[in-house]
Design a binder for these strands. Structure first.
Lengths: 225, 225
DNA sequence: TTCTGAGTTTAGGCTCGCCTAACTTATGAC
DNA sequence: GTCATAAGTTAGGCGAGCCTAAACTCAGAA
């Protein structure tokens, strides 16, 4: 068996990850979006798209954008599993904080073997989410669906549990950790000012006023109050 | 500060490691040796040697061979530290056996950050040797000197402690582990047949007869008997 | 319906790191 | 001292992956 994933370069893996993130079943990813995401010139992306669609990793409709094929999605999910498990391992086993793991994982995800990834998973007891609350795809590529609502879309008075944090900015992450606004925390929305105004949120420890941008990064599961 | 080591490719790191291994203060590494070691065509090595000597990482005397400059040696030792610490970590923390860690470390050594390497070192209590008994260079690049003699060069009746194992062949390593011939083991040479004949060696548990090739891979520190 | 501009693709060029083929150098046998 | 040969180097080529500049497409405004 010679799986496609055996011969992929680091670059290709990054393209597929980016396209996975930027596209959906109903919306293809555009050349310029991908270029932006990877910090490359659009022309470079066009070239790579051509190669990858010839390899059967994505579908390309000229001037319209790209979607992953099942094979391409398989690769992307494999990278996502690696990335999130590596982040989890670095935090749990080597004392990294959640605002510093991203770059390290970004490099390691291309270098680790499947064996090592699964050993890390076992050592952690096969976690289902990473330190930011993002779900870890299973080895066969399934991702649990969850219903989440941004803190900015909740109604005042409602309670919820923080599920995921949608930023990777170290400053944001450190600030959120300082306030106790981390995955698993129980919160109640107290006030929401209009026009992207600040949000007042109560944790089990304290009450904080946070900016709209920060609140929008917090994805929550609402609870009966 | 922009250290040279910030911009090196995986390939360059491998060349420097190979040259470190193949050369000494008195003997330069030859083009064909390096090519052999890296499984490349000699012409490719010639090309890379040119680039690396222009970068100040090695000294090249045409048709004579290459030596590392202090800067080149610094890079090589940094890679060696990484490699050996990664091997140590994988064995100690993730249950790898000493015959399977090499390939994994070979890829990871190019991807880890200095920070991660030092965290692994700390987690292990800053070991001085790796699972094969090879010394781990310190962060500043110093390598402890040790006096070692191959089992094939010892006199019958003499006792010793196994320091290092000079092979990476998984089959050899597994076999040695089965016999208890691992770093730290106390042994006594019982018999040595001439003409590269078999060696009889006694451990604390048993007595084994091993082939010359295997015995030559065992580097020992002799002890008073 | 035509035109314009944003977005996309093509054309051509570059470096890295490898290759093979052809040439050059050093060395040791005679 | 000459010369055959092994070792090393140069020349030229290729794919990956990036770039800039130029050409093309599509969609929305006039």
């Amino acid at each position: 068996m010679t799986a496609v994933s055996d011969t992929l370069t680091r670059s290709v893996e990054d393209y597929l990850k980016a396209i996975y993130r930027l596209s959906s079943d109903i919306r293809p990813a555009s050349t310029s979006e991908i270029a932006q995401h990877l910090a490359l010139a659009p022309a470079s992306v066009s070239g790579m798209i051509k190669r990858l669609s010839e390899q059967g990793l994505l579908e390309h409709e000229r001037y319209r954008g790209v979607q992953l094929t099942p094979e391409g999605r398989r690769v992307a999910l494999r990278m996502l599993r690696r990335h999130r498990l590596i982040e989890s391992y670095l935090v749990a086993a080597l004392g990294y904080s959640w605002d510093t793991v991203h770059d390290e994982a970004e490099r390691l995800e291309h270098a680790v073997s499947d064996d090592l990834v699964e050993r890390m998973a076992d050592a952690l007891g096969n976690p289902r989410v990473d330190p930011h609350g993002d779900p870890i795809p299973s080895p066969d590529g399934s991702v649990p669906e969850t219903v989440e609502v941004a803190l900015t879309d909740m109604e005042p008075g409602h309670s919820a549990r923080i599920h995921r944090v949608r930023t990777r900015e170290p400053e944001f992450l450190r600030h959120l950790a300082d306030l106790g606004l981390i995955p698993g925390a129980h919160i109640t929305l107290r006030d929401r000012r209009p026009f992207l105004g600040p949000i007042t949120v109560e944790t089990d420890q304290a009450t904080h006023v946070v900016g709209h941008e920060l609140a929008a990064a917090l994805l929550c599961a609402e609870e009966e109050s």
